[in-house]
């Protein structure tokens, strides 16, 4: 690094990125906070400021409870399952030699795919009359179920799809972490007669703990924002006309886009902003808790 400061030149190099980021990242960030406290905002003008009204309106929305419920279920069920399964797959995949490359490619495939296209494929797997799942259930004499027809079974389907969609990235990160662990630790453990399961709990997991912490944080944040999987599986309208609030698959992000789509109604944009701030605060709190836990658990 040169000692001499080159301020003007540096800012010139930064200009294109900073200009775009100012318009599309920094300004929106502040504006979101501004919008959330405006009264009856519509088409660029507002009638004044309010303190908590927009937040109250969001919370009073009959869909809000459902959105929180759906989001929480997705977060607290799919994340632990997919992290655990991905960890097991990665460790086992890392331990084999034959067919490792082929299996690895298959496990990585979902990473690049399109959430909408695959969601449609899943919707057809869960189809009552023509779906694969009911076909497989019929092999063990279980009657067909209209998986996407009720909230309970629909949620099960959504969770299956969410776990499926989350595996690839986690396996990729875990595998690259596992491959960076010095093999000598495993040789040392072998010489010391360490049972396989203890090697996993006492050596692999601690040495992989930075990856596990990273994956846990990012998956929590990611599934708090669940929306595209739902659009893929259930269709573009997360609040189809005629569904009862407690039967919909609306999530917090779904709620934000619902409000935003009614931007011509006074106050709706502010509600979207308020909801997005609530989402931000929630994910931030989770990240902080996660990091605090990791700091105690993660080694190095």
């Amino acid at each position: 690094m040169l000692e001499k400061q080159s301020n003007v030149k540096a800012w010139l190099y930064l200009l294109p990125a900073l200009a775009l980021l100012s318009v599309f990242t920094f300004y929106p960030l502040f504006n979101a906070f501004l919008l959330a406290f405006l009264k009856d905002y519509v088409y660029g003008s507002a009638t004044g400021f309010v303190f908590m009204d927009n937040f109250k309106n969001v919370i009073a929305d009959p869909n809000f409870n459902q959105a929180v419920k759906n989001t929480s279920i997705i977060v607290f069920v799919s994340v632990p399952i997919s992290v655990t399964v991905a960890l097991m797959i990665s460790v086992l995949l890392n331990s084999i030699k034959k067919f490792q490359g082929l299996l690895q490619t298959i496990f990585f495939l979902p990473y690049v795919t399109n959430a909408i296209a695959i969601g449609m494929a899943f919707a057809f797997i869960f189809n009552e009359s023509y779906g694969l799942l009911n076909l497989m259930l019929s092999w063990v004499n279980i009657d067909p179920v209209d998986w996407l027809g009720s909230w309970e079974t629909g949620m099960v389907s959504l969770l299956i799809y969410t776990v499926w969609g989350g595996l690839a990235f986690k396996i990729m990160v875990f595998l690259s972490g596992l491959q960076s662990i010095d093999k000598q630790y495993y040789d040392a453990a072998r010489v010391d007669a360490t049972p396989k399961f203890r090697v996993f709990t006492r050596i692999t997991v601690p040495l992989l703990s930075p990856m596990i912490a990273y994956i846990t944080v990012t998956s929590f944040i990611g599934s708090f924002k669940a929306y595209r999987t739902i659009v893929g599986l259930f269709g573009p309208t997360v609040l189809p006309a005629g569904t009862l609030p407690d039967e919909s698959f609306i999530t917090i992000v779904g709620l934000i886009y619902e409000s935003l789509s009614k931007s011509d109604t006074p106050g709706m944009v502010s509600e979207a902003a308020a909801a997005s701030i609530l989402l931000f605060i929630t994910t931030l709190a989770f990240t902080i808790v996660n990091m605090w836990v990791s700091k105690k658990r993660v080694h190095f």
């Binding site: 990242t25 929106p28 979101a32 919008l35 944040i221 992000v253 997005s276 994910t283």
Partner: peptide, 11 residues
């Protein structure tokens, strides 16, 4: 760290 939805509204 900030959810993209916060930006999308203003954008």
């Amino acid at each position: 760290m900030i959810p993209g939805e916060m930006f999308v509204i203003t954008n």
